[in-house]
């Protein structure tokens, strides 16, 4: 798996960045680790894991003509490995380049 090599050295935030960048050709990408806001969260407390909650703002041409559900699914698909390995929740803002272009 391509992600394994980078996974060893990068933080989860770094892996999320590189995965979204490559699979969705993001033209703009903001990733914010908000795990601390969920420190008391039952699921987080039990696992003791860090880097569980992120805010993601992403602009990608691949969202063109797609519903919000489909856009979020593209993001989730790109991060499937992370979601299986302790990433708990994402808050996603997914836009097309056109939608963020100044009018």
């Amino acid at each position: 798996m391509a992600s394994r090599a980078s996974g060893a050295v990068l933080s989860r935030a770094g892996r999320i960045r590189s995965k979204l960048q490559s699979s969705l050709e993001a033209s703009a990408l903001e990733i914010e680790d908000v795990s601390h806001q969920h420190a008391g969260h039952a699921a987080v407390r039990e696992s003791g894991a860090a880097e569980t909650h992120f805010n993601v703002k992403i602009v990608s041409p691949k969202f063109e003509g797609k519903s919000l559900v489909s856009r979020h699914r593209l993001v989730y698909d790109a991060l499937a490995d992370e979601l299986r390995s302790g990433l708990h929740a994402l808050s996603i803002v997914a836009k097309t380049p056109q939608e963020v272009a100044p009018k």
Partner: peptide, 24 residues
Amino acid sequence: SNWPTFPQVFVDGELVGGCDILTS
């Protein structure tokens, strides 16, 4: 639902989305 997180909201049998989408 092919959706990895909760909450999930369905309308008429279709997944509408989670918190972000509902908020929007």
